[in-house]
Design a protein around this nucleic acid. Structure first.
Lengths: 252, 252
DNA sequence: CCGGTGTATGGCATCCAGTGCCAGGGTAGG
DNA sequence: CCTACCCTGGCACTGGATGCCATACACCGG
């Protein structure tokens, strides 16, 4: 695609007949960065991507939503992950936070320039904050559902702490995205460790997990989770996943 | 200026020659509640208050900002309070949170209907969330300034906990604003007590992280999550995972 | 009393995000 | 081939938001 005038429309097939969402987002991010968010019009994005103005609104909802489109996908992934994790709520919440951080680190091409835009524009800042609030609410509900409704205060505090810890590490990376990812993960581990300590203070009730939930995948969805050392090679990873999937014990 | 209905313009003095801000907010809240937020136009508010459409934008910035106008005043009050409280940072932060809660309880005439509007409208919800984030950031900065900059993580966690506790109590009141305020304050005290306990855990840092533990426990781990329809065949699943892992953007 | 300055206001024109409506084209299913 | 969709694009329109300009009133020195 690239240039100002070049179009993207590729084939006429059902799967990808239109400019891919990611391409649109990347083009929009580029325009926002170069011309400024306000100065960039939806018509400009339409011209740059070959998607009509009307379809942009239909597919993304609003100009801001273009910036956060893939973020929404990440969010729903995390929510489904939580829904499929009945055991060890605090551990699952931390794993979910790890998932979010991973989502950012995964494609700096979008998240880093978005961070710069967000810093410069209060309106976008609010939007970003709203996203983290959605995570926080999801974590809070998840933690509160585990124990009785009576502990919603405690769940809210732990969720807020976890989100704050996550955001702290995330921002440290966003400010210097070229640093060694291992440092980032080390900071993340230290941060979640802090949260675990506070959670111990908050949640002194030892008993939990009154799970009789036969409906972990209520919507007919299944979830596969693999935790592995970062330096695992792709082939090795795939080999182990293949082995694990072959074992019905592993993936409910 | 006199629009359709009764007008307010009172005297011709410098202090209050125009319709008071609070009157405008109250009228707007009434219109929002009766006609719906989206259905209420700035022209309608202008007609109801006797303030021209143009001046409404000048004085409030946007339609949403009318709803949160006095909230901004509360915020700056709290910030000034913090700036004037060099001693006992945690206690001052709790006192500041008390101030915020007090600000809500003080005039339910605005805060309660606003809460209902906020619950119904995602866009307003985001705006409200952004407000609490501003408080959280202010608390965090305040707490971090006290001790060294190194403890910004701890400060952020404590601030988040405090905000979460405050919001928990606040919502409990907003859902039933007629209850005895003493109950609300009792809940607030209990909640801040919880925060103090967690803060003790967080802020006393005896050792921790002198080690460059690059491999401690979860350090350097990655997570792969795949969500898929339950009836996906194993081969199809593996094929898709392989494809995803092959794409560095998807799963590192 | 008068002219100058600063400020808040209102009216007007304009831009542009966002939405409803309808037409066209391509696909799936009979 | 026809029909029932579904996605897309074009068009018109509402309304939030901003810039520009003229006006009214307060303040100040003369």
């Amino acid at each position: 695609m690239a240039g100002t005038g070049a179009r993207a429309r590729a084939e006429g097939r059902g799967g990808a007949s239109r400019t891919d969402t990611r391409e649109v987002v990347l083009a929009a991010v580029r325009l926002f960065t170069e011309d400024g968010f306000d100065a960039t019009t939806m018509e400009g994005i339409a011209a740059a991507t070959g998607v009509s103005r009307r379809s942009l609104f239909r597919r993304f909802g609003s100009k801001e939503d273009i910036l956060f489109a893939e973020h929404d996908e990440l969010f729903s992934t995390v929510v489904r992950f939580l829904e499929a994790s009945p055991d060890d709520p605090l551990g699952s919440a931390c794993a979910a936070a790890r998932l979010v951080l991973q989502g950012y680190l995964r494609d700096p091409e979008i998240t880093v320039p978005r961070y710069r835009l967000v810093r410069a524009h209060p309106r976008l800042r609010d939007r970003e904050v709203a996203m983290t609030a959605r995570y926080q609410a999801a974590f809070s509900r998840y933690l509160a559902a585990d124990r009785g409704e009576r502990h919603s205060l405690e769940a809210g505090v732990v969720a807020a702490s976890l989100i704050a810890a996550h955001n702290h590490v995330l921002r440290s990376w966003l400010r210097a995205p070229d640093q060694d990812p291992r440092e980032v993960w080390a900071r993340f581990d230290a941060a979640t460790e802090l949260v675990r300590r506070t959670a111990e203070t908050v949640l002194d009730t030892p008993e939990r997990r009154a799970t009789g939930d036969p409906e972990a995948g209520a919507a007919g969805e299944s979830v596969l989770v693999a935790v592995y050392p970062s330096d695992t090679g792709r082939d090795e990873l795939l080999r182990r996943i293949t082995a694990a999937v072959g074992d019905p014990r592993r993936t409910p």
